[in-house]
């Protein structure tokens, strides 16, 4: 009797995917908001791509990362929401009462959140192509964008799961997702760094890791394979993942601890 960690993780992940699919309103609004960003910004702001700083780049390719990252952050927040829901309806305790691996109990919702993100990102890129997106680096570039989106989603899923496990409260973890706004908007969201006017926003954009995510995606979408520009996104992901996953792990340990 008893399973490996992997089998437990698989069983619990599948269950989380099922519950996500059965609650379409947990991901549809997020998807609509992201598509909305893409349409509105492309429609309203694409004229600024005529500015010399843009160097003739396609504004759609410039704004696409914003839409992808907003979907990633919103979707990853779902991992935390799922955990809180389980704690509130007692299912979390039911799992703790089985010999299931404690790691699997926490990993399941996070992995399910990642997969949700993967599908969302593909959908948004498809919408981009429908609007006339051209990717400088082709198919492999799209894969790189997907990779970055998922990495950033994982970082945020760690954060949202950590908040959920710590607070065990729907309202608290909901308000934890407020970090979404500074992350998305205090950055090179609409225009390149050089065109940002306010000094404080420049400073914020420099500190905000999302800036490096945007820039690495834009590199492959607009400029081509420029190793170092791509790497800044990867480094941002590694650093932030290390922080948030540690936070999630510590919170999880507390939540399943029997103190």
């Amino acid at each position: 009797m008893g399973n490996s960690v992997w089998k437990d993780t698989w069983l619990i992940t599948v269950r989380n995917i099922k519950t996500t699919i059965r609650n379409p309103f947990s991901f549809i609004p997020n998807l609509i908001i992201s598509a909305f960003f893409l349409l509105v910004y492309e429609g309203g702001l694409s004229g600024i791509a005529q500015l010399p700083t843009f160097d003739g780049a396609n504004y759609l390719a410039f704004i696409l990362p914003v839409s992808i990252v907003s979907a990633a952050i919103g979707g990853a927040g779902g991992a935390g929401q799922g955990i809180v829901k389980d704690i509130e309806n007692g299912f979390f305790s039911r799992l703790l009462l089985t010999p299931a691996s404690r790691l699997a109990i926490v990993l399941g919702p996070i992995i399910a959140g990642m997969l949700q993100l993967f599908v969302q990102t593909i959908l948004i890129i498809c919408i981009g192509f429908l609007l006339g997106l051209k990717v400088e680096t082709g198919f492999l570039g799209v894969l790189f964008v997907l990779f970055i989106a998922i990495g950033w989603g994982l970082a945020f899923a760690g954060y949202s799961a950590g908040v959920a496990l710590r607070t065990k409260n729907a309202q608290a973890s909901q308000s934890g997702t407020l970090i979404f706004f500074p992350l998305i908007f205090l950055s090179t969201t609409f225009v390149p760094y050089e065109l940002i006017d306010a000094q404080w926003l420049k400073i914020a954009a420099t500190i905000n890791p999302t800036t490096y995510i945007f820039e690495s995606m834009r590199t492959v979408l607009i400029d081509g394979w420029i190793f170092w520009d791509m790497m800044q996104g990867v480094i941002a992901i590694v650093v932030v993942c290390a922080l948030t996953i540690t936070f999630a792990a510590v919170s999880a340990k507390k939540a399943v601890a029997r103190g």
Binding site: K18, D86, G90, S93, R94, L97, T98, P99
Partner: peptide, 23 residues
């Protein structure tokens, strides 16, 4: 436990099968 530990989004059969597989 005093509070039932059931996931409202799954069916009764699915919950039982999941529990059995975990065991």
């Amino acid at each position: 436990l005093q509070e039932t530990g059931v996931d409202p989004d799954l069916t009764g059969r699915e919950l039982l099968e999941l529990q059995a597989r975990i065991f």
